[in-house]
């Protein structure tokens, strides 16, 4: 696969942040950019990144598999990433997550049949004072102080926008 000229220009700007010969430092920002474009990281996309950065494909795979933000399989249009760590559980994250599973009728890690929503759990998002919290890529805006009512509104809005 080929990236567009526009994306390649962005890649060039990313790589310019590092010293000569250290272009590998651009790998994480570039993978984020690719995922924002295609929704997930396919093997073809990772191979193309390897080629652009002059790396062995394995150097890209080992990074993409290490970091939890990268999706290595197709995901729904909206990936709901709900914090499941202790402090959020103190303020109700567990019940809320159950509610969300029932509402979307999917389990954690699954995607709704219409391809709209994928439900994921993530670890502490540095939003413990405003939990329960979830975020949605590729902008990764935080939805804080979640309640069942707020979730209803959010899901309705996302459904109507698509």
């Amino acid at each position: 696969m080929e990236f567009s000229q526009e994306i390649k220009r962005e890649f060039d700007q990313i790589v310019a942040r590092y010293p000569q010969g250290r272009q590998k430092s651009g790998l994480l920002p570039i993978l984020h950019r690719v995922q924002a474009e295609y929704g997930w990281l396919s093997t073809e996309a990772m191979n193309a990144v390897a080629e652009y950065l002059n790396l062995n494909p394995i150097e890209v795979y080992e990074v993409a598999t290490f970091y939890t933000m990268f999706h290595l399989e197709p995901v729904g249009k909206y990936v709901l990433e709900v914090c499941r760590t202790g402090p959020c559980c103190l303020v109700g994250a567990e019940t809320l997550l159950q509610y969300l599973q029932r509402k979307l009728n999917i389990g954690i890690g699954e995607t709704t049949p219409d391809g709209l929503f994928t439900l994921k759990t993530v670890e502490c998002l540095a939003s413990c004072g405003t939990g329960p919290v979830l975020q949605i890529g590729p902008e990764y805006l935080y939805h804080e102080h979640l309640t069942e009512q707020k979730l209803d509104q959010l899901i309705d809005r996302l459904r109507s926008e698509s």
Binding site: C89, V91, L97, I108, G109
Partner: peptide, 13 residues
């Protein structure tokens, strides 16, 4: 009731 009510473990997907 409240936070922990009927909570099931959040397991790995």
């Amino acid at each position: 009731h409240g936070a922990y009510a009927h909570a099931v473990p959040i397991m790995e997907p």
